[in-house]
Amino acid sequence: MESYLQSGSHTVYALRYHFVTVTKYRADILTDERLERVAEVAHEIAEDFEADIKNVDGGTDHVHILFTTKPTTDLTKFINSLKGVTSRRIRQEYPEVKQTLEDAFWQPGYFLATTGQVSLDVLMDYVENQ
């Protein structure tokens, strides 16, 4: 397995996460274009948090995001920014979405797991084939 170790001035770490969120009411509204836009916005947000998005994919009602972070990253703030900003941007840029989802784009909850000993390549393959 390839090593994905990162390092700081006094630390070595491998913090890899698998994040999944679903659309409000599991509405089938994520077209390929909208999913691509979610990915673009996620990359922008990740830069602000010094996180690295490895892959974004999903279906018509959910998104998988694989990312790495530093040990100092506030995961709650990062996830809230991912969900909040992507929700706002999608609803602004695709007004037709408001007909289905007026107040929110994502369900309040989400799934977040560390990847453990599974290689990033295996996870990327899993996400791409969802």
Rank of each mutant, 00 (worst) to 15 (best):
P108F: 04
I29C: 15
L5A: 10
D48S: 13
T21F: 04
E33A: 15
K83W: 01
Y94E: 07
M1K: 08
F105Q: 02
M124T: 15
R26G: 06
E40V: 12
V12K: 10
D52R: 06
S9K: 13
V38S: 02
V12E: 08
H10Q: 13
T23A: 05
E102Y: 14
L35N: 08
T21V: 14
L75W: 01
K24L: 13
L120Y: 06
A39T: 07
I79C: 06
V12F: 09
A51M: 04
T72S: 15
H62Y: 14
D74G: 08
G109S: 15
M1P: 12
A42F: 09
T31A: 07
E50N: 14
E33Y: 03
E36M: 08
D48E: 13
V127G: 05
L123C: 05
S119Q: 07
V97I: 15
V20M: 01
E93D: 15
G58D: 07
A39Y: 04
Q117E: 14
S87Q: 02
P71A: 04
Y126C: 10
I29D: 03
N129V: 08
I65F: 00
E102H: 14
A39P: 03
G58S: 09
D52H: 07
Y126K: 11
Y110R: 00
M124R: 14
D32Q: 11
T11K: 04
Q6C: 12
Y126H: 14
A104P: 00
E36L: 10
V63K: 00
E102M: 10
D32T: 11
T76Y: 02
N129A: 13
L82Q: 07
L112H: 06
I53D: 06
D28P: 14
Q107L: 13
G109D: 11
V38W: 08
A27Q: 13
V38E: 01
M124Q: 15
R34P: 05
A46C: 14
I79R: 01
L15H: 12
T11C: 10
T114L: 08
D48C: 10
H43M: 07
L5F: 14
Y110G: 00
S81R: 09
P71Y: 04
V122K: 11
E128I: 05
V56L: 03
N129H: 15
T60W: 02
H62D: 04
Q6L: 09
T60S: 12
Q107F: 05
D52A: 09
A39Q: 10
R37F: 06
Q107Y: 04
L82M: 10
S3I: 08
G58I: 08
D61N: 15
T86C: 04
E102N: 11
L101F: 06
T115D: 02
G8W: 06
I90Y: 01
H62F: 11
F67I: 05
G116Y: 01
I53T: 11
Y4H: 13
S87W: 00
T23S: 13
E50K: 12
A42M: 12
E47C: 07
S7C: 12
D103T: 15
Q107A: 15
P108D: 12
D57I: 00
E93V: 06
E50Y: 09
S87R: 00
V97F: 02
S9P: 09
T69K: 01
D52C: 04
L66F: 05
A104C: 10
D48K: 14
E40W: 06
A27I: 03
R91M: 11
